[in-house]
């Protein structure tokens, strides 16, 4: 149970904007175990987006190390990072980020295409994941024909398709009304209950309350890191 999924050591990220250097992350150390459900919180400018990009292997740190599922990813090439994103991470974005012209099924299949999985197996696996998020009857619909909640569930099915080590959700309820938002969080809780490691980036306390642990960022460093109960109260 205590297998490390995420481990960072002195993670720093600086941006150069004109003559100024923006220190977005100033040395972040976190460890997240397999099966955890962690919220990363913080006001805008705290560096949480930057941290999410680094955890999601969309970006590389200026300094420091990052191990994902035992692989040191902080100094991998672009192509290797693409492979890690494909195999180890499932993304759920605030704006869904589905391909509008492709069917739900095809959207879910997409990571498998880049993984080089054959067409038959792709279809089979994509169908299973869509059924898991209760969209078995919407497989041939395109995103514009689906509601916000349904779209986000397609995104979750897509994120799970490669059985990733980590599900990374960036404000997944940000574009949903509160009722569908709650439904979405229920899906994530279910997934976590069945063993899926989840990292959730949010600035809403209510949403963070669904997780089991909160990491607060402030000015590029971790300010708080605690386990909490279902009401979001520190244990």
């Amino acid at each position: 149970m205590s297998e490390l999924i995420i481990q960072t050591d002195g993670l720093k990220k600086y941006y150069i904007l004109g003559s100024e250097t923006v220190r977005a992350l100033r040395g972040v150390n976190i460890e997240i175990n397999s099966g955890e459900f962690v919220s990363i919180m913080g006001p805008s400018g705290s560096g949480k987006s930057t941290l999410m990009n680094l955890i999601g292997c969309l970006d590389t740190p200026t300094e420091g190390q990052y191990w994902l599922n035992g692989i040191q990813v902080s100094d991998l090439s672009d192509d290797d990072l693409a492979r890690i994103r494909n195999q180890e991470i499932g993304f759920v974005f605030q704006t869904f980020n589905l391909l509008p012209r492709a069917t739900a099924l095809h959207n879910v299949e997409l990571p498998l295409i880049y993984a080089g999985v054959g067409a038959k197996e792709r279809r089979q696996r994509a169908k299973e994941k869509l059924e898991l998020v209760k969209l078995g009857d919407r497989m041939d619909h395109r995103p514009p024909e689906l509601s916000g909640g349904q779209r986000q569930r397609v995104a979750v099915a897509r994120a799970l398709i490669n059985n990733p080590a980590l599900l990374l959700a960036d404000e997944p309820t940000g574009n949903l009304d509160s009722v569908t938002g709650e439904e979405m969080m229920a899906v994530l809780v279910d997934l976590n209950n069945s063993g899926q490691t989840i990292v959730l980036v949010t600035h809403e306390k209510d949403i963070a309350a669904y997780s089991k642990r909160q990491i607060h960022l402030h000015d590029g460093i971790v300010s708080k890191d605690f386990l909490h109960d279902k009401a979001g109260v520190q244990a």
Partner: peptide, 11 residues
């Protein structure tokens, strides 16, 4: 961007 996030390489 979506395709890259999902694992599409530069190639």
């Amino acid at each position: 961007g979506i395709r890259k996030a999902l694992g599409a390489t530069k190639k």
